[in-house]
Computed example of a mutant assay.
Amino acid sequence: MSDLECISHHIYDKISSIQRLLDLSDVPQDKMKTLGQKILSLEILLEEFETTVGCQKDQLNQLKELEELFHNHVEILQHLKDNVPAHMSKEKGPEIEKEPSPNQDQVPNVEPIHHNIAKNIKCYVREMEFITTAEFESIPQYMKGRVSYSQINAAVQSINTAIAAKYKIIHQPVKTLKNHARKLLQRFKDQETKETKGQYFVVEEDLREFTQMKVDKRLQGIFNMLRHCQRLREQRGGRVTRYVLL
Rank of each mutant, 00 (worst) to 15 (best):
37 Q>A: 13
192 E>C: 01
132 T>G: 08
12 Y>S: 13
138 S>A: 14
61 N>C: 01
155 A>L: 03
147 V>C: 11
113 I>N: 08
72 N>L: 15
180 H>W: 06
72 N>R: 15
133 T>K: 06
240 V>R: 06
203 V>M: 09
138 S>Y: 10
24 L>W: 02
123 C>Y: 11
193 T>V: 12
6 C>K: 13
165 A>R: 03
93 G>N: 08
220 Q>M: 02
186 Q>R: 11
41 S>D: 12
188 F>V: 04
205 E>S: 07
92 K>W: 14
2 S>E: 13
237 G>C: 04
135 E>S: 02
125 V>A: 00
26 D>V: 10
17 S>G: 10
155 A>E: 03
63 L>N: 11
49 F>S: 10
9 H>V: 05
158 S>H: 15
32 M>P: 00
36 G>W: 06
125 V>N: 02
160 N>I: 04
114 H>F: 08
36 G>L: 12
160 N>D: 08
243 Y>G: 04
228 H>D: 05
63 L>M: 13
57 K>C: 03
36 G>N: 10
200 Y>H: 10
214 K>Y: 11
193 T>E: 15
91 E>V: 02
134 A>S: 10
121 I>F: 09
225 M>Q: 12
64 K>I: 11
237 G>L: 05
27 V>R: 13
193 T>A: 12
136 F>H: 04
133 T>W: 03
173 P>R: 09
158 S>D: 15
4 L>M: 12
4 L>C: 06
219 L>K: 04
158 S>A: 15
139 I>N: 05
232 L>S: 10
241 T>V: 14
16 S>P: 00
27 V>Y: 04
209 E>W: 08
29 Q>W: 04
111 E>H: 04
163 I>H: 03
99 E>S: 07
149 Y>H: 15
132 T>C: 04
174 V>P: 00
232 L>R: 06
45 L>F: 11
170 I>D: 07
5 E>H: 11
7 I>H: 01
